[in-house]
Simulated assay, not measured.
Amino acid sequence: MNSRANQLKAFDRLLTIMDELREQCPWDKKQTMETLRHLTIEETYELGDAILDNDLQEIKKELGDVLLHIVFYSKIGSETNDFDIADVCHSICDKLVHRHPHIYGDVKVTDEADVKRNWEQIKLKEGKGKTSVLEGVPKSLPALVKANRIQDKVAGVGFDWEQPHQVWEKVEEELAEFKHEVDQGNTDAMENEFGDVLFSMVNYARFLKINPENALERTNKKFTKRFQYLESKARSLNKSLKDMTLEEMDVFWEEAKKL
C-alpha cells in the first residue's frame, strides 16, 4: 500500500489535473453542478454494481470516478468563492469528530446500537429548524432504499420492535390483509396493502441484518443470468422463446439453476 505521503501526492495530482481540465477542456469548462448531477448518480450506481459483483479492480475504477465528481463539484464551488476541497474535507472531519463523542469525547458506549442512537440524536440536535429524524431521508431515494433508511432512522431513536419474531408476526398480519383485499378485488386497497407487506418485509430484513436492496439485486442478477441461459439454449435450437412451451423452457431453466 502507498504511504500517506504518496496518497497525498496522488490527491494533489488529481486536483492539478482538475484545475487544468476546467481551464483548458471545452467540455469540462461548460459543466455545472446541475449538468453533473445525473452523471454522479450514474457513477454511484456503477460503483454499487461493482461492489455487488465483488470486482475489486472495478471498484477501484468506480471509486476514482466518484472521487473525480467530488473534486469537480469542489472546483466549481471554489470558482464562486463558496467552498473548495479543503472546506469539504474539513466539513466532514468536523462532523465525524462531533458525531463520535465516544472516540473524541467522554461519552461511553457498549455496542453498535448505542453508537447509532447517539448518531441520530446528535443529528437531530444539529438540524436547524428540523423537528423530525426523518427529515434527513432524501426524498429522491428509490422506495426500497428509502423504506430501509426510514426504519433505520426511527430505530436510532428507540422506535423499534424488540424481537425478530414480533416483526415476522407483523409480516404475516400484513400478508393476510393483502390477501383479503385481493379477494375483494379492490385495486387501490390492494396496492396500499402490498406496500405495507413490502415495508414490513424490509423491516424484518433489517432485524436479520439483511440489506433488502442488495438481496433484491442479487435475485435480479440471478434471474437475468438464468433467463439469458434460456435464451441462448433457444437460439442454439433455432427457436424463439414465444414458440416454446413452458415445459420446454422449464427444462433449460432447471439446467440454469445448476450452473
Rank of each mutant, 00 (worst) to 15 (best):
L141W: 06
E43D: 05
K128E: 12
E172N: 13
V171C: 00
Y204F: 14
E193Q: 00
V97G: 05
L230I: 10
E213Q: 15
L8E: 12
V137K: 05
L47Q: 00
L14E: 06
E23I: 07
R4N: 15
I17W: 09
G195W: 02
P138E: 00
N186Q: 09
D160A: 08
M33Q: 08
K170H: 09
F223E: 13
E248D: 06
D55A: 07
I41R: 00
R226E: 10
F72R: 15
V66A: 02
R22Q: 04
G64T: 02
S91D: 09
S132I: 04
Y104D: 08
A234C: 08
I210A: 03
D183S: 13
M244H: 06
W168D: 03
A234S: 11
I41Y: 07
P138Y: 01
T110C: 14
M201V: 12
D28C: 07
K116G: 07
N186A: 07
D196H: 05
K139F: 12
D188R: 15
K233C: 08
T131H: 13
S140F: 05
K153I: 03
L67Y: 06
W253N: 10
E58A: 09
E23Q: 12
K125S: 11
I70V: 08
K125E: 11
S132E: 06
K30M: 05
Q184Y: 03
L208Y: 05
E42V: 01
V71W: 01
K116D: 14
Y104P: 08
N211L: 04
V167R: 01
K9F: 13
F83E: 06
F159M: 08
E126S: 11
A155D: 03
V137S: 00
V157L: 01
L198C: 07
E254Y: 12
I92P: 02
T32Q: 04
V109W: 03
M190D: 01
L246G: 15
V197A: 01
E20P: 06
A10H: 08
D94V: 10
T80S: 11
G77Y: 04
K108I: 15
K9T: 12
V171N: 01
T245Y: 09
E191S: 13
A189D: 00
Q31I: 06
P164K: 01
H180N: 11
L63G: 04
K222A: 14
S240Q: 14
G129S: 04
I51T: 00
D53M: 09
S3N: 01
D111E: 00
E255T: 02
V202M: 02
V182K: 03
A86S: 14
R37P: 05
P101S: 10
E62T: 00
K221D: 08
L21D: 06
S200E: 05
E181C: 02
T131Q: 14
K130A: 09
T245D: 06
Q121M: 15
I210S: 02
K9C: 10
